[in-house]
Amino acid sequence: MSYVTSIQPDGTPTWIDLRVPDRERAMEFYGALFGWEYDSEAAGARPGTDPGLDLGTMCLLRGRPVAAIVQDPAAKGIGWTMYFATADCDGTAKRVADAGGTLLTAPTDVGDAGSQGRMAVAQDPVGARFGLWEGRARLGCEVVNEPDSLVRNDLVTPDPEPARAFYASVFDYTLDLNETLPDADFTFLRRKDGHEIGGIFGLRAAPSSGWATTFEVADTDAVVGRALAAGGTAGAPEDSPYGRIATITDPFGAEFSVITRAA
């Protein structure tokens, strides 16, 4: 079991949340896909929410937080937002601005006097939205890299070069080409310790730039079937060197992927 029990190193994807115009419908959909349970009482500890607004609902797997869903009438087109871990939200926010990014939400405390953490939301120079999370009592996702939890985040953009320069500048990532897929314009992002946190996929045909969220599942085909039955849409599952993968779109237009990883 892949439990997270301590604050993640800087630059690690550590949390995800989804803003939707109908939270109850979203809870129904994602519960059907992943078997998540929900805890509205715990949502105040969730990164990404102004304490004065609707605090949303924590998504739980075996009682541990894996994501959050928040009601937002203006949420159309936002989709899943991924948050990078940082030990200094204010300092990293400054690096974002200095590197050419835009702060959409300035660093803000979450919980009483910031007891749970401190967060910000930003946009990179190619238009992709992401968050920063300085964890304190609230770590972020506490289950990862196993079925029904977050396994990967990759940036898809028609303009990869500025994105590579930006993220390397903000988080001191090392950039490595992906030799497994020689025909793809894909660059691994690695922390200072060499750990791969995701990558940047240059796709000239992409209509916009965005961080793609991928969940691990035990059976991609079965999850696609459940998504269709629950009112979503999905592409046909495909085999890749990394496993069997499919792209799903929820009833609100938020796109994400699921993968059954290769043995």
Rank of each mutant, 00 (worst) to 15 (best):
residue 2 S to V: 12
residue 2 S to H: 14
residue 3 Y to D: 14
residue 4 V to Q: 09
residue 8 Q to W: 05
residue 9 P to Q: 01
residue 22 D to I: 06
residue 26 A to V: 07
residue 31 G to Y: 03
residue 43 A to Y: 06
residue 55 L to S: 12
residue 57 T to R: 03
residue 62 R to A: 15
residue 66 V to F: 05
residue 67 A to V: 01
residue 70 V to G: 13
residue 70 V to E: 11
residue 73 P to D: 15
residue 74 A to Q: 14
residue 75 A to N: 09
residue 75 A to P: 08
residue 81 T to W: 04
residue 95 R to H: 00
residue 103 L to S: 10
residue 105 T to V: 14
residue 108 T to K: 13
residue 111 G to T: 02
residue 112 D to A: 10
residue 115 S to H: 09
residue 115 S to F: 10
residue 115 S to T: 13
residue 125 P to K: 04
residue 128 A to L: 01
residue 139 L to A: 05
residue 150 L to D: 00
residue 153 N to F: 04
residue 158 P to A: 02
residue 169 S to I: 06
residue 171 F to P: 02
residue 172 D to R: 11
residue 174 T to L: 12
residue 176 D to C: 05
residue 199 G to P: 01
residue 200 I to V: 15
residue 203 L to T: 08
residue 206 A to Q: 08
residue 208 S to D: 14
residue 209 S to W: 05
residue 210 G to L: 12
residue 211 W to K: 04
residue 213 T to L: 15
residue 218 A to T: 09
residue 221 D to K: 11
residue 222 A to W: 02
residue 227 A to K: 01
residue 229 A to S: 15
residue 229 A to T: 09
residue 229 A to K: 13
residue 235 G to Q: 09
residue 243 G to Q: 04
residue 247 T to H: 12
residue 250 D to W: 10
residue 253 G to V: 07
residue 255 E to K: 12
residue 256 F to Y: 14
residue 256 F to D: 06
residue 259 I to E: 04
